[in-house]
Design a binder for these strands. Structure first.
Length: 492
RNA sequence: GGGCACAUAGCUUAGCUGGUAGAGCAGCCGACUCUUAAUCGGCAGGUCGACGGUUCGAUCCCGUCUGUGCCCA
């Protein structure tokens, strides 16, 4: 038997007392017909309320209570917001008022009454009937500061959502953003699909997978790191425009930008190029910002960001030359570039490939400096095993990443649809894996076979939903936009 | 994986060069029929994250561990 604090014991005694009095502390027979927002919508603009014959029913959690002996104000919170209730002894009756007196902050109640304005003009509900619907056994956090301890906010998100309206708003916005994306895609004739989360061969991204096991089939399975290879199989199958909004899992570190499971929207459009997708992305992002923020100009963590079009486009090479302290002939020479990389503090093996080296330099000297939306293009073929080679320069691919606020938000490319080339690229990845690169990709024979049937010329893109939500809700950490972020085991 | 910081009542927190803790809110009792961080009087609530060490004595100093945050890889 766990030891309970005085506070918790008091609440439990109240529940016991209710049972003993023949009252169920957890009834389920109350149907609220209105929300707090309904009351405001209907009566909020009416100055003189003559509504004593109106009947409103609401339900919600008691967040605050101000008692005066024979009357009290309580603040009720439901899914739409908050509304003040006025409870008066000579209105609800002696017995009901005695019961009401035992209600605690945190309890869930149902009430019936009529709207009115208090002396100070606040629209409130004048209660005729009030009932306990759920007895809460825990005291809520302090009313003024709320819950600020980040660990508790993440571990007990339900408490965070009860007492911190800002937290709730973030997740309401997140839902709206996802809905906007979904309808934007659907209106452009994209088909929403669901592809496997459990892969026999993890593919579609350079990342370490989570491994799991299927008992009946006695087979190792991997949680997907990306849906890419399955979505492109669908394009082979003739579903020329598809998208999926779902979770990816990557067995990597946790940071303010990384959660082991995170949400991506991936989409593929036949007969499009990566350049088409840059325009498409600008349109999508501007649409979302306009709907969510009402503007294309906003601030994120105190820094001004504008979605004003057109967005800057820059090759990886030009970006390094612009933001790094390095000359072109230095960057273009592998050995000189390697010594430059080491001079800025990167520790890299001697045998590192030139493409990887360039991206290491890019990540170090450029990425965090790109605040305004910027499309970075012309990625090394070596680090892009699923992208189409550039027609004029086989060392680079037709790919871009979108960087906003110093963070990668999207990744897109014209798809590699030459099965012979794809097989060679897979083999190069396998060689890297054999050399010990745990992030290198696996050979996927069936995917090559699908390409052999013919993948239409296609472009595809992945957009990080969590990071997009961070951007539009001004959240400093990915944990603020994921309802239940991953944490270590809780200590008792 | 490395570095730095933090962990005190349900919540938000104070606590000086080491002498075993103080507040606000919440709670309980009492007063109060228009408050909104309601007000007024009283009361209670703490193995100071865990385990070791130093010391006559540790919330405080040292070590290890756990959790969290930030930075780096």
């Amino acid at each position: 038997m766990e030891e309970l604090s005085e506070l918790l014991l008091q609440r439990r005694r109240k529940v016991d007392a209710l049972w003993e009095a023949g009252i169920n502390p957890y009834p389920n027979d109350f149907k609220p017909q209105h929300t707090s927002a309904d009351i405001v919508a209907t009566y909020g603009s009416v100055e003189q309320l003559d509504t004593a014959d109106v009947s409103i029913t609401v339900a919600g959690r008691i967040l605050a209570r101000r008692s005066f002996g024979k009357a009290a104000f309580i603040q009720l919170q439901d899914r739409k917001g908050r509304i003040q209730l006025y409870v008066k002894k000579d209105q609800i009756g002696e017995e009901a008022f005695a019961a009401f007196d035992t209600f605690d902050i945190g309890d869930i109640v149902g009430a019936e009454g009529f709207p009115f304005r208090t002396k100070t003009g606040e629209l409130s509900l004048h209660v005729r009937i009030i009932r306990l619907l759920v007895k809460s056994l825990h005291p809520l956090p302090e009313k003024f500061h709320g819950l600020t301890d980040v660990e508790t906010r993440y571990r007990q998100r339900y408490v965070d959502l009860i007492v911190n309206p800002e937290a709730r708003e973030i997740f309401v916005k997140r839902s709206r953003i996802v809905n906007l994306i979904r309808s934007f895609m659907t209106e452009r004739d994209f088909l929403e699909v669901e592809t496997p989360m459990m892969h026999q061969i993890p593919g579609g991204a350079t990342a370490r997978p989570f491994i799991t096991h299927h008992n009946t089939l006695d087979m190792e399975l991997y949680l997907r790191v990306a849906p890419e290879l399955y979505l492109k199989r669908l394009v082979v199958g003739g579903l020329e425009r598809v998208f999926e909004i779902n979770r990816n899992f990557r067995n990597e570190g946790i940071s303010v930008r990384h959660n082991p499971e995170f949400t991506m929207m991936e989409f593929y459009q036949a007969y499009a190029t990566y350049e088409d997708l840059m325009d498409f992305t600008e349109e999508l992002f501007c649409h979302i910002a306009q709907e969510i923020l009402g503007t294309l100009d906003f601030t994120n963590q105190g820094i001004d960001i504008s979605f004003g079009r057109p967005w800057k486009r820059l090759t990886v090479r030009d970006a390094i030359l612009e933001y790094g302290d390095i000359e072109a002939k230095q960057l273009d020479d592998r050995d000189l570039a390697l010594s430059y990389a080491r001079s800025i503090g990167l520790s890299l093996p001697d045998e590192i490939g030139y493409g990887k080296l360039v991206m290491e330099i890019f990540d170090e000297v450029v990425e965090h400096k790109l605040i305004a939306p910027t499309f970075i293009t012309a990625y090394p073929t070596e680090v892009s095993p699923l992208s189409r080679k550039n027609d004029h320069d086989p060392e680079i691919v037709d790919r871009f990443e979108l960087i906003i606020g110093g963070r990668e938000i999207a990744n897109a490319f014209s798809e590699l649809n030459d099965p012979v080339d794809q097989k060679e690229r897979f083999l190069a990845q396998v060689a890297e894996k054999d050399k010990g690169d745990e992030e290198a990709q696996y050979m996927d024979e069936d995917y090559v076979r699908a390409l052999e049937y013919g993948l239409p010329p296609t472009a595809g893109e992945g957009i990080g939903i969590d990071r997009l939500v961070m951007l539009l809700t001004d959240s400093p950490s990915i944990r603020d936009v994921i309802l239940f972020p991953q944490l270590r085991k809780e200590v008792k």
